[in-house]
Design a protein around this nucleic acid. Structure first.
Length: 588
RNA sequence: CGGGGCGUAGCCCAGUGGCUAGGGCACCUGCUUUGGGAGCAGGAUAUCGAAGGUUCGAGUCCUUUCGCCCCGACCA
């Protein structure tokens, strides 16, 4: 590519709103441009980098038996009604009517579409296992797009779907993906960790997320430095301690101005862990078959020294959504905010009790009366409810596996793998006949990688104060050829020779000053820079630098530029390949 | 959806209710220059986000509205 003809141009200053360095450089180097909130165009560099990432993904997906397909972005709503997700997913999925008024949706994922495909193609166990994947546009009307390509509304995603006769088959395909994903991310140069995850709206049980650890991430990851334990905070567990002692009789005490656990503990001169607090939420429950909504007050009871993890509470309550309850709603169920507990509340309240409370005795809880608390309350004796783990794990808590203190960090989810089991095949009647002629639902898995998000994470991970420093596997071009000489002939010849040899070259043939050219080369950040200038030219050489180390300078002989460049490309590729991560999934 | 911020040339930003709306970068022309965002001279580019209002007079004040960003709610 001749830079004089390049569609994009570089920007000297960061456009307003480019808050992270990775995003700023992608904009300034001319990889991407914003069209609207969470909507971006890919310019030649951005698109080429994307295609290189996609190629890595294709190779690894094909290697585990994937067959590439392409499904429509627009789906008839019917299939989404079959699985119920037409009703259970809120505004995040965009809907419209076609000219005859049929309900249509913009697919935000393709479980429904692929299951519809599969039920037409799969009839016998002899056809299984199968794996299909696509690399395709998704639209999700996220309420809050942000951070450039990290959290967008329209994006490219690799999504694959596996079909098996049994759990063992699913486990095999899950393990294949687990391993392939590490290969994909490491071939692209992105360091990731895998964490246990919540399966959320996807249904199913086992799932993992691939996280790029970074302060710009929005997910909180709980890790154990001493053992292998890692999990998204939404599902992370920890070792709890309990106050088990002989039950004592309930006693009502006056506790004025003690609306928080801290105030209460100080007033009564007890530990926060000797109290039980109530968290009030209103859950929305949606009937999957007709979309009817029902709201119900949920009270989460947790020990005073712990916090409720709302995601866990929502799962335990089997609610579709949660929102904080208004004081009136709480009072209507015979409870008092600030002095609340499940004791004496209306029977239609959903009580979820953390095991920290259920397994402890004689906790101080609200009396549901302004200014009063109850001493020595006990779960089971004084109130009942569903026992579940709804506590939020934090740094310093004991690892559930080895007991050492946990750590917490921020991460960006770049990939995920889910065991769907029969969540979709059952509701959409996607079955196969086994050896005995019995119809059984196909066992499914679903696996995603955010392609644009991966590029954004790479930009975040690979930059310095001058610009991008992308790995050679994903860099749009391998070589940046900078010509500083008046007579273009030498540079033109080298450009032609390198291109002919199959090397991707950006040739800066512009009539610009050396400073401008170097600054742009730094900003765009292609791995190998070849400078043609009089300084080295009179010795029959060209100057060579690696973007990753601008301090060090090499030189290539004019008559062996092609061979030496090829060797340099191979060397960089080799270095990256030597960092390939091979990791296996072991079922617990 | 709640809270906050910002919309002035392609980009970054100035602009007390008062003359023809400015600067830097980028762009065009000419000359000069060619190893780290050059110099000189000249030039073009704005429905001041939009609509309505107040006023003799609005980029500036008021109302409405649209868009973008940030915090929160939210998020496979």
């Amino acid at each position: 590519m001749r830079m004089s003809q390049l569609f994009s141009k570089t920007l000297r200053e960061a456009p307003n709103g480019a808050d992270s360095k990775g995003y700023e450089y992608l904009l300034r180097a001319g990889f991407i441009r914003q069209l609207g909130a969470g909507i971006f165009s890919l310019l030649p560099f951005g698109f080429t980098a994307t295609k290189k990432i996609e190629q890595v993904i294709r190779e690894e997906m094909n290697a585990i038996g994937g067959q590439e397909v392409l499904m429509p972005v627009v789906n008839p709503a019917d299939i989404w009604k079959e699985t119920g997700r037409f009703y259970s997913i809120d505004k995040e999925m965009s809907r419209f009517n076609d000219r005859v008024g049929r309900d249509m949706v913009l697919a935000m994922t393709h479980e429904e579409a692929v299951t519809d495909l599969a039920r037409g193609e799969i009839d016998s166990y002899k056809r299984l296992p199968l794996l299909v994947y696509q690399i395709q546009t998704k639209w999700r009307d996220d309420p809050r797009p942000r951070a450039g390509l990290i959290r967008v509304r329209e994006f490219t995603m690799k999504d694959s779907y596996s079909f098996d006769v049994d759990q063992a088959g699913l486990d095999k395909q899950y393990a294949d993906h687990y391993k392939a994903y590490f290969r994909i991310f490491s071939r692209c140069g992105l360091p990731v960790i895998v964490v246990g995850a919540d399966s959320g709206m996807m249904g199913g049980k086992i799932s993992h997320e691939y996280m790029y650890l970074s302060p710009i991430g929005e997910d909180t990851i709980i890790t154990c430095p001493s053992c292998e334990y890692t999990a998204n905070r939404q599902v992370a567990t920890f070792k709890k301690t309990y106050h088990a002692e002989a039950e004592k009789a309930v006693e009502k005490v006056l506790t004025p101005e003690c609306k928080t656990i801290e105030e209460l503990a100080q007033f009564l001169k007890i530990e926060e862990s000797q109290t039980a607090k109530a968290v009030f939420q209103v859950g929305t429950f949606i009937n999957d078959t007709n979309g009817e909504e029902e709201e119900k007050l949920i009270v989460g009871i947790i020990r005073g020294d712990l916090e409720v993890e709302e995601n866990k509470l929502q799962n335990a309550a089997k609610a579709n959504a949660l929102r904080p309850a208004h004081p009136e709603e709480i009072v209507a169920k015979k409870m008092v905010p600030g002095y609340g507990s499940a004791i004496g509340c209306s029977s239609d309240v959903l009580v979820i009790v953390d095991d920290s409370v259920a397994k402890s005795n004689n906790l101080v809880a609200g009396a549901n009366e302004e200014g009063y608390h109850l001493l020595n309350t006990n779960f089971g004796r004084d109130y009942t409810g569903t026992v579940a783990d709804i506590a939020s794990a934090s740094a310093g808590y004991a690892c559930p596996v080895c007991g050492k203190p946990l750590e917490s960090s921020k991460g960006v989810e770049v990939g995920n793998i889910f065991q769907l089991n029969t969540r979709y095949s059952e509701s959409m009647n996607c079955t196969y006949q086994d050896e005995t002629g019995v119809r059984k639902p196909v066992i499914m898995g679903s696996y995603g990688i955010g392609v644009g998000r991966l590029l954004a994470c790479l930009a975040e991970n690979y930059h310095d104060d001058k610009g991008l420093v992308l790995p050679i596997s994903v860099s749009p071009m391998q070589v940046h050829l900078v010509s500083l000489v008046k007579d273009a002939q030498v540079a033109d010849d080298i450009y032609a020779a390198l291109t002919k040899a199959g090397i991707d070259v950006l040739y800066d043939d512009r009539k610009e000053s050396a400073g401008v050219k170097f600054a742009d080369a730094d900003l765009i950040g292609f791995p190998i820079r070849i400078t043609i200038g009089n300084r080295s030219l009179k010795e029959g050489k060209v100057e060579v630098k690696l973007r990753s180390n601008l301090e060090e300078s090499f030189s290539f002989e004019l008559n062996t530029v092609v061979e030496e460049t090829q060797a340099m490309v191979a060397k960089l590729k080799g270095e990256l390949a030597s960092q390939l991560v091979e990791k296996e999934w072991k079922k617990d």
